[in-house]
Nucleic acid binder design. Structure first.
Lengths: 338, 338
DNA sequence: ATGAAAGCGCTAACAT
DNA sequence: ATGTTAGCGCTTTCAT
């Protein structure tokens, strides 16, 4: 039954009232008599009328669409399960608040340039959630300047920016403290890319934990990788000659790569080298030994980012908010504590 | 520099012409003198004017937004790298053709109901790409009825539907034929969920290959799983007592689970059991032995789905198109052929 | 080739 | 509480 195109006028006529009243009913305005409201709702139900969102937007200057902007949507981003979970969260936040989610993946610098205006100045988007990746560092100030309401996913220093992050710093600290507690002496880390704030914070947490115990930091035990399994495999191979007795790996995906490199060298986890990851993905329970890791609420970060943005949109943005969600140490077999 | 809100009128005034002409320039209409066009473009460049996409949509009845609809965006969907790649492809297709992508993840049946009207009858979307999952089977006919232009990702029987798929059938056939060629006698399969067409086709390809060699099909060697690693781990454990000498696993992620179960039983791949996966994800080259698998072009499916949809939108939809992209056998170590 | 004018379907003053 | 009306910024006939 391909419903005919109904407009607010026809609904008004059918309900024996004016467009304004129909509009009021549609928007839950108070000044409508129960009588009229009932009538209108009845007609709407009968006809299956749906207001045209575009006409609505033009008139109200609000689209009820928010964008999720991913600054440099390169390959590695999609190899980590982080990103799909985040999307899922943001989508869920949008759904529950009746917003539509648009996705802006900038696959290259040129695309970023091309799409930037659309994202920032177009009336299409009421606001944006931006992920703070390396490339994001360049984009975020521009978005801030442009004045689009926005929430960053990931720590961001600019005081004008609201953000949601998980507590990478204390997560990493917990991981490394735990390894220290177990008596490890040469704790290495496979860190993430330099420009990524999560990677930075996890690295800092690693340093903090060592210093808190008065341990000297050995730069040779810190290697950088790229959040991919293959990258971490290579990183671990570089690390092996330096004979660490434990490694804090900045993501579970990378921990899988590290594990393989260790196995490949004929060593055992946790007997020769203890391992702690970060994320607590399902894979963490699918390896032998089970991976000790730091749990972070990825999906919930997405939900929250969306909700903070929408809240600001609907209730007027106050001061920027910074929300840091707790992380949690999940002890399994790979750290050798059982 | 927070640009003032410019409208087409002001551009017209500044360029010393009428709104109509500006609009013509904007839309590349032929009937504009080079003179006027130059003037207008100059003013646009100077002012940084951007037409309001919403006003434009209201007037033209086209939004340049397409939706990517994921019928039952349950957990398992996000544990497989398939989905993020598909998104990436669709996004890329949209970017290159100046469309905006909106994402509709239905996390539950209620959400599906709630959002269905919006997706189907709203003027917001010019068309949709729908993924054909189990749940999609219920949604697609409804979308078809509603008349929204659409392209399905994954085989769909309804003759009115256009779709893009990869050649699961012959991919699976290649996998199993290869295992047969290597002399395996008891070839099992870990299939995907019953309602998933890709899973069905891969299962059928398995059957076809056996029959082509005149091998009897042993139902005990066919187990169903859910495209997750954990699920496949359990499935493989069920399979082990039946002593297969080879297993065709319907996804790489599941192959990882199967591998673990085999190892857990103290058996070796490929010596005791040969393994072939499906997808050719990066992980396939991160296991020992390297995983023999069937490569399918996930990202490209996404690009194509978007492009087919957009092409239909802009050039008028002709007959439904069915595009099946080739798959490819990638021989590595897990099948025991080297 | 150009401009005038009529909408697109809705919201939001404003008047009552 | 309700109805009237003027836009929102653009595209698109329709004249010229």
């Amino acid at each position: 039954m391909p419903t005919e195109k109904l407009t607010i006028r026809q609904i008004a006529t059918l309900a024996g009232t004016s467009r304004s009243s129909v509009s009021r009913v549609l928007n839950n305005h108070p000044n409508v008599s129960p009588e009229v409201r009932r009538q209108v709702l009845e007609v709407i139900a009968e006809t299956g009328y749906q207001p045209d969102p575009i006409a609505r937007s033009l008139s109200s200057r609000r689209s009820n669409i928010i964008g999720l902007v991913v600054p440099l949507a390169i390959r590695s981003l999609f190899e980590d399960p982080f990103f799909p979970r985040l999307i899922q969260g943001v989508s869920q936040g949008c759904n529950t608040h009746d917003y539509t989610l648009s996705l802006f993946l900038f696959h290259s610098q040129e695309e970023e340039e091309k799409l930037f205006d659309g994202v920032s100045r177009n009336q299409l988007l009421d606001g944006v959630v931006v992920t703070a990746t390396r490339a994001g560092a360049a984009l975020i100030p521009r978005l801030l300047e442009s004045g689009v309401p926005m929430v960053v996913q990931g720590r961001h220093e600019d005081p004008r920016a609201s953000y949601v992050d998980s507590d990478n710093l204390s997560g990493a600290r917990m991981a490394v403290s735990h390894l220290l507690r177990l008596g490890n002496q040469r704790i290495a880390t496979i860190a993430g890319p330099a420009g990524n704030t999560a990677a930075q914070d996890r690295r800092q947490g690693y340093l903090d934990a060592l210093q808190a115990r008065g341990c000297a930091v050995d730069d040779a035990l810190i290697v950088r990788s790229d959040f991919t399994q293959a990258g971490a495999y290579e990183a671990m191979k570089r690390l092996l000659p330096r004979q660490p007795d434990a490694v804090f790996v900045a993501s579970d995906t990378m921990a899988m790569g590290a594990l393989q490199a260790i196995r490949g060298a004929g060593l055992s986890v946790p007997d020769d080298i203890a391992l702690v990851g970060f994320d607590d993905l399902p894979q963490a329970t699918m390896v032998d030994p089970l991976l000790t890791t730091i749990r972070q609420p990825i999906r919930r970060m997405g939900v929250l980012a969306a909700e903070m943005l929408i809240d600001g949109l609907e209730n007027g943005a106050e001061a920027p908010r910074r929300v840091v969600l707790p992380t949690e140490l999940v002890i399994r077999g790979s750290c050798g504590s059982r």
